[in-house]
Design a protein around this nucleic acid. Sequence first.
DNA 1: GCGACAG
DNA 2: ATCTTGTCGC
Length: 301
Amino acid sequence: MARGALGPPLRETLSRWEREQAQLKTSVIDWDTEAWQRDSDFAGLHRVGGVDMSFIKADDVRACASLVVLSYPKLEVLYEECRMVNLTAPYVSGFLAFREVPFLVDAIQRLQKKDPNLMPQVLLVDGNGVLHHRGFGVACHIGVLTDLPCIGVAKKLLQVDGLKNNDLHKEKIQHLKMGGDTFPLMANSGTILGMALKSHSKSSKPLYVSVGHKVSLGAAVRLIQACCRYRIPEPIRQADIRSREYIRRTTELANSQEAGQERGPEGLREKQSPTLSPTRGLEESAGEEEPPENPSPGHHS
DNA sequence: GCGACAG
DNA sequence: ATCTTGTCGC
């Protein structure tokens, strides 16, 4: 029941989500709003945030949401939070935000309350900004809800508005020579939706950078490049690493308790936040299991 | 029927 | 997103 069995209730949810995106979209600001964005060395920029979520295979409900804040330009971790959450929405391409954003915004707001001095001045988001079916990807969504400058960083091209991952596109990628090289991603309308960026000399795959909120595309690309020690910009990479590790330790703990203890449902459950107010979404998303998919065995050189 | 499908 | 080891190269 991956995509075929999604019934009428989901269809209604999707149109509700579309309306919500359209409404929030009117607040997106796609130009520089901070002085540091206009400075070639980002003078005045000291804290860059990154958010990401990791999931458990064979568990449709529990996931780990992670927020990190790194210093700039040294890219050292100043703040880190990982938290287990209960998902309320499935993943649907074009609606990623409704699956992940509530927990990430929560994390931002907790930081704001707990340690305002560590609030990031810009947030890097795993996914797209305006490079999106309706021009309102997850990076825009978080930006509007938090009022933070946000940048969308996707690892794969979302083929929308005439953008195609075809031979021409792959050829352009081949032509990217050194780290920092880019080419524009132009929609049918002539609008530049984002930039393909070779973020690291040794990576053949580019990043797809797009405006989320309160940044220009030029500043976004420059900052992403400045944050890349490896292919993935360090704030997102650290959030990813830490959330995966958190999941790994959590499932390990669960397994050891199930094996060692006869039955101890109390010890582990305490780690979850008791005060989650799930946004009204799909009630049935926590229902069934899915048989694992068998990917065809890839064989390259 | 075929292809696409951010995470 | 997740399932997964070693391997080739600097």
